[in-house]
Structure formats: C-alpha cells, structure tokens
C-alpha cells in the first residue's frame, strides 16, 4: 500500500493533549478521528484492537473526536463523556465501553458506564451536565476538518491520511510498510 504523496497531513501533531496507547518511541503512529455513534467506527473498533495486538510496541494509537452531532444525536455527549473520564485517567476504559455499547449512548447510559468504570463522581456528572469538555471535542473536530477528515473513521499513519480501506489486512499492510526501515 503506497502512501499517496498528495494525501492530506495532520495539521495538529500528536502531543500532550492527546489520548494515546503505546510508547511515544513507537516507530508508527496511528491516529483515528472517530464518532462513538458511527457504525463504521464501531466496525473499525475491533480492527484497531487487532492491529494494536499484532504491531505490539511498534505502534502508538491515538484517538481524536469527530462527532457528527446532527446525524448522530448522542455522539457529542458520548465524546464529552470519554474526555470527562479521561480527566480521571480512564479515557480508554470509557472509549471501549462506548464502542462496545454503541446502541445505548443516552445520558443515562453514559452515567451507567461511568459507574461501571468508577468515574461517576460529582465531578464527572457536572462535567457532562455543564458540557465542560465540549470545547475540547470541538478542537479535535476542527483539527480533523483542517487535516482533511471528511467522514468517520479517518485514519492517519505517521501523520499522513490513510486513503485506502481500514479492513484489517489493508490497514496492517500500510502500518507494516510505515514501520519498515528506510521509510522515515
């Protein structure tokens, strides 16, 4: 899978504001812009888990929010819930919970997930009710738009938009190619 030299680039580099899995020294970074209520993102969720398993320490995974709130009425609040859990160092627990329960993302459901992962403090409830993380979610969204995200999920491999499919084998091939020596 040759990467297209004209493919759009990430305008906001991976940094301290991001939620990441894997080492900062990994040879390959995979950034996903996703929407918790988007069925395609739901389909990509186990694929990402699998590539993380296969790539091991070579891969660093980053998730950024890209909720299409008009089409998916629960997506924005779900994204805020993940950020609010993230403020208590449980972003990935909530992220996984949301993708594993995509058909139940109303506010009460979100509070239930918060209980299950033990972040249901008054602070979490207040963050959700007061939309404390709405601006942060919007920052992610706009950074995506400016980087050429045009639908979800959109992936970037080492900062370059992955235009091919995100089927397991296709994505693996692109990641392996990016990890190969002499490609940096």
């Amino acid at each position: 899978m040759n990467s297209d030299p004209h493919s759009p680039r990430l305008v906001l580099p991976v940094g301290v504001r991001d939620h990441t899995q894997g080492s900062a020294k990994a040879t390959v970074s995979l950034v996903e812009y996703g929407d918790y209520e988007c069925p395609y993102c739901g389909a990509a969720y186990p694929i990402v888990k699998e590539v993380q398993k296969r790539m091991g320490v070579k891969l660093r995974f980053v998730f950024r929010n890209f909720p299409l709130g008009n089409m998916h009425p629960h997506a924005s609040l779900a994204a805020e819930a993940a950020e609010a859990a993230g403020a208590q160092d449980k972003f990935w627990e909530m992220h996984d919970m949301l993708y594993e329960n995509q058909d139940a993302l109303a506010k009460n459901d979100l509070l239930g997930y918060a209980r299950r992962i033990q972040v249901d403090s008054p602070r979490f409830v207040a963050a959700l009710t007061g939309h404390e993380f709405a601006e942060r979610v919007r920052e992610d969204f706009l950074s995506g738009v400016k980087s050429g995200v045009n639908g979800t999920p959109t992936f970037y491999i080492n900062g370059i938009r992955h235009n091919a499919s995100y089927e397991l084998e296709v994505l693996m091939q692109a990641l392996e190619a990016a990890a190969a020596p002499g490609r940096h």
């Binding site: 299409l68 709130g69 008009n70 089409m71 969204f141 706009l142 738009v145 045009n150 639908g151």
Partner: peptide, 13 residues
C-alpha cells in the same frame, strides 16, 4: 451525504 453532513457541522465556523 457525508459531505453535506460535514458542512452541516461546520455552520458555526
């Protein structure tokens, strides 16, 4: 539909 939905989200911008 994706394109129009994206623009829809960008109306504030």
């Amino acid at each position: 539909s994706d394109q129009m939905s994206l623009y829809n989200e960008l109306l504030p911008e």
